[in-house]
Design a protein around this nucleic acid. Sequence first.
DNA 1: GAGTTTGAAACT
DNA 2: CAGTTTCAAACTC
Length: 242
Amino acid sequence: MLRSVSAADTTSRPRKPCNCTKSQCLKLYCDCFANGEFCSNCNCNNCFNNLEHETERLKAIKTCLDRNPEAFKPKIGKGKEGESDRRHSKGCNCKRSGCLKNYCECYEAKIMCSSICKCVGCKNFEESPERKTLMHLADAAEVRVQQQTAAKTKLSSQISDLLMRTTPIISSGGGRLPYTFVTKEVLEATCECLLEQAKRAEQTHEPQEEAERMILEEFGHCLMSIISSAGKAKADCASINC
DNA sequence: GAGTTTGAAACT
DNA sequence: CAGTTTCAAACTC
């Protein structure tokens, strides 16, 4: 659900795993190979893009370079200092996507199509109303995800706050939990989570039934979170013998 | 998850 | 070079 597009982690790069079956990951069809990387954590079959097949791999690289000496150079003319020379080196050749789907290499790289493109029916240019609408939708979706994440973070922090400062009521009573966990703060944070989920459902135009299901499920998550924290607190309490 | 659509890469 | 096929990913249902 949460796509990790974090450009921040420079140390480990969880390059998206490929699923090649026929290319042996030795053709440019394979994204790993095309990016000059070995396959790692991929789902490919019969993969030759690794150290065990170094000779074949080198041969394949040579073949690609023979065909196109630029094959392994970045396709986007680098976005240095936010400069506008961010354009696709070859341009796209889209026919049916309007260049507003990820099939289009320009659109995928979040850049406008340019004069070097040979696309038909292109809607991927600055003034394109279709493009603007799409961008706004994407922005809104991103904000939505951020808000939902924030709500969840808040809930768990409210809970952990409780663990720090609440006092036990009665620790006896069979399976009774030792603290009053459903405080005003936890309640509010939970409601925020549910509200965010509702907004999310609304935004993706879920039918009412599905929206209700999503919200209930979110409530379940919140509840589990509260209960497991409470249970943990009780266990801690017991071990300290309080 | 299965099936369809898409356009780059590969091939002729 | 243009036309066709192959391929893996994006997308849809």
